[in-house]
């Protein structure tokens, strides 16, 4: 997102934006989140396609794997400037790759986030994975969530109306 007049940039690569001034950040919040009464949700997504072009769904796929392998192959690992780049956050440089979990980052992050806070949001707040991607020309379909939430664990997916 481009910086705006409202944005302040401090040292250390930290940017603060007091208001959601960019459309992308507004979309993130208000199309996906917030209180909703399903039967009264009436949104026409017509015309929004241009607005969500930068929304990519991160999915682990064979393409991603090949791209990672290729990119790592190209890395010049002799360049060992310790002062630059991301730190090794694992602390233990010799961690066995095979031991690593392969589950998604989000699930992990979510678990650790909710573990930290004792607050008892019951974990059924998963967004239903709506398949409204195809019908951006029509008013958004009503969404209905079962009261108890189906126990299926689905990743929270980002709407990508424009991608099809």
């Amino acid at each position: 997102m481009a910086s705006t007049a409202m944005t302040t940039r401090n040292g250390g690569g930290v940017m603060r934006t007091p208001n959601p001034t960019g459309l992308a950040e507004v979309i993130d919040l208000i199309l996906d989140k917030g209180l909703v009464i399903d039967v009264y949700l009436r949104v026409s997504l017509v015309g929004i396609e241009l607005l969500t072009v930068d929304a990519r769904i991160v999915v682990a796929s064979v393409d991603t794997y090949l791209r990672f392998a290729e990119a790592v192959n190209r890395l010049d690992l002799t360049e060992t400037d310790e002062s630059k780049g991301l730190p090794d956050l694992f602390g233990d440089a010799e961690e066995d790759g095979a031991q690593r979990k392969t589950k998604g980052a989000l699930e992990g992050a979510k678990t650790s986030l909710s573990d930290l806070f004792s607050s008892s949001d019951d974990e059924d707040e998963e967004e239903d994975t709506d398949d409204e991607d195809e019908d951006e020309e029509r008013p958004r379909r009503r969404r209905r969530r079962t009261a108890s939430g189906d126990s299926e664990e689905r990743p929270r997916r980002r709407r990508a109306a424009a991608r099809k």
Partner: peptide
């Protein structure tokens, strides 16, 4: 190549978790 990439992807996922853990440590 796919297997190597998959292992790297798992490493990236772990790195994301480590960043999340660090963020929680600071902001929590």
């Amino acid at each position: 190549r796919i297997a190597a990439g998959e292992a790297i992807a798992a490493g990236v996922a772990d790195y994301r978790e480590a960043v999340a853990a660090r963020a929680l440590e600071e902001l929590g």
